[in-house]
Amino acid sequence: MGMMTTNQTKPSTPSARAPRRHTTLATELGDLMAVAEGEALAGLYFPGHWHPPAVGSIGAPVAVSGDGLFESTRRELSEYFRGERTAFTVPTATHGDAFSEKVWDLLAAIPYGTTTTYGAIARELGNVNLAQRVGQAVGHNPVSILIPCHRVIGSDGSLTGYAGGLDRKARLLGLEEPPEVAESRLF
């Protein structure tokens, strides 16, 4: 299978939210709790996630098999971890405030294999002084991996905060690292 580069889609916001449901997806980085709202993924959380979903907000547990959205999410994540997918097509529904939604839209636009900084996102929003607020929005991204908050690093190039843990962030960035960069590293 060739590299997939289709952009992720975001459904229009319905006037009333669809009922939620959740499942567990096994991945190379551990189990992820996936939360769906209708036909959109509303959450993807690592164990020990810094900002887990609110109690009572994940809906009923369901099996992955027979749920088209969860089956698609599992397939796309598997392709991503095998290096066969560079973008996701699973629709998401994030429901953040206006500022967070702008930040998450910018995260979704960060190309595979590249990184940016909190300050660069703040500049893109028109005010470099918003870097700390950008960091808060990035940290509250409810859809890990699909909305690639792992691609945001410190201004000095350091790995900074990741709601799923810095070890996972490093592994995700390593997975996406261009071959020529990986080959030039001494470690």
Rank of each mutant, 00 (worst) to 15 (best):
L173R: 12
E183W: 11
A108S: 13
N141C: 15
T89C: 04
T115W: 06
K169P: 01
G154V: 09
H150K: 03
E180Q: 13
G126F: 02
A131N: 05
A163F: 07
H150Y: 10
N141G: 08
T160C: 13
E180F: 14
S144N: 13
A108L: 01
H95G: 05
A120W: 09
S155K: 14
A120D: 15
I121F: 03
V103Q: 02
Y118D: 02
D97I: 07
V181G: 00
S144G: 07
T116F: 03
P111K: 02
G135Y: 10
R123Q: 12
E124M: 12
I153Y: 07
E176T: 12
T92Q: 06
T114D: 03
P142A: 02
K169V: 04
G126V: 04
W104C: 03
L130Q: 13
V152Q: 09
S184G: 03
K102T: 11
T114G: 02
L130E: 11
H140R: 15
L125K: 02
A182D: 04
R133I: 00
V128E: 15
D105Y: 03
G157A: 06
L175N: 10
S144I: 02
R168V: 15
T115F: 08
T92D: 02
L159Q: 04
H140V: 08
L159E: 02
E124P: 00
A108W: 02
S100M: 08
F88D: 03
T94M: 15
G164A: 10
L172N: 06
T117R: 12
V90Q: 00
F99T: 04
I147A: 01
L172G: 03
A98T: 14
R151A: 06
C149L: 11
I147Q: 02
T116N: 01
P179E: 07
P148G: 01
G174K: 05
E176M: 14
V90H: 00
K102C: 12
L107C: 03
L106S: 09
G96S: 06
Q132Y: 10
P111E: 04
F88Y: 08
G135C: 12
N127E: 14
S144P: 06
R168N: 10
G154P: 01
